[in-house]
C-alpha cells in the first residue's frame, strides 16, 4: 500500500474534496431511502492491483457481495463500483417500500438506481470542485452474490497502481450499508493530481 503519488497536502485535499462529494451523495440517497445516512471519513489509497481485492475484503467483510459498476470519462477517466453485501441488497427493497420480496429483475433495477444516484452525486460533487467535465456511462450489474475477493479481475488491469477511494454509507436505524469505490489508473491519477494542484493554487 502506498500513497507516494500524492503529497500530504494533495492527499488531504483529495480526501476533503471527496468528503464534499460524499456529503452530496449522502443527502441524495437519504432523500431516496427516507433514512438518515451515516457518513464516515473517506479513505484514499494508491494500491497495486493485487492489493485491491484484500482492500475490498477489509471493507465489506466475509459475506458475498453484489456490485454495480459505472464508468466515467471526460477530464477524468475511471470506474466507480458500488458494493453491497447480499443481505443488504434484499433490505434495499424494503427500504424502498416494497411489501413483498421483489423478483430478481426488480432487485437489480433498484441496485442500479441507487448506485447511479450515489456515483453521480459523489463524483459529480468532486468533479465540480476541481472544474472537471465528466460524463458517466450507464450503470451495469458487475456481479451478483460472489466472494468479494473475486469481484475485480485485477489481472486485467494494465496500470501498475490504482487510486482506491473508499466511501462508506450506512443507515442509522437499519443495517443497510454500501461502499463506493472509485478506481483510477495511474495515468489518471496524475491528471487528478494536476487538477488538485490547480485547485490548491486557487485557494
Amino acid at each position: 500500500m502506498t500513497t507516494a503519488l500524492f503529497s500530504e497536502d494533495q492527499r488531504d485535499a483529495l480526501q476533503e474534496l471527496t468528503n464534499i462529494g460524499m456529503g452530496q451523495a449522502g443527502a441524495s440517497v437519504a432523500a431516496v431511502l427516507g433514512e438518515f445516512v451515516q457518513l464516515s471519513v473517506p479513505r484514499i489509497l494508491v494500491l497495486k492491483p493485487s492489493l485491491i481485492p484484500p482492500a475490498l475484503e477489509r471493507i465489506v467483510g466475509p459475506e458475498k457481495v453484489t456490485a454495480v459498476r459505472q464508468g466515467f470519462h471526460g477530464d477524468l477517466r475511471g470506474e466507480a463500483v458500488v458494493v453491497y453485501g447480499v443481505a443488504h441488497c434484499r433490505e434495499l427493497a424494503d427500504l424502498m417500500g416494497y411489501d413483498e420480496v421483489p423478483d430478481e429483475a426488480t432487485e437489480h433495477e433498484l441496485l442500479l438506481d441507487v448506485s447511479n444516484v450515489l456515483i453521480g452525486a459523489c463524483l459529480g460533487g468532486l468533479a465540480e470542485q476541481i472544474s472537471a467535465e465528466m460524463g458517466f456511462s450507464a450503470p451495469s450489474l458487475m456481479a451478483t452474490e460472489v466472494e468479494v475477493g473475486s469481484l475485480l479481475d485485477v489481472s486485467r488491469m494494465d496500470s501498475p497502481c490504482a487510486l482506491f477511494v473508499e466511501v462508506n454509507f450506512s443507515l442509522e436505524k437499519r443495517s443497510f450499508a454500501c461502499h463506493l469505490i472509485m478506481l483510477l489508473p495511474e495515468d489518471q491519477i496524475l491528471v487528478l493530481r494536476d487538477a488538485i494542484d490547480r485547485f490548491l493554487a486557487s485557494l
Binding site: 468528503n19 464534499i20 460524499m22 456529503g23 452530496q24 449522502g26 443527502a27 437519504a30 438518515f36 445516512v37 457518513l39
Partner: peptide
Amino acid sequence: VSADIQPEA
C-alpha cells in the same frame, strides 16, 4: 461547517 447536507443533519 460540514459537507453532510442532509436536512436531518
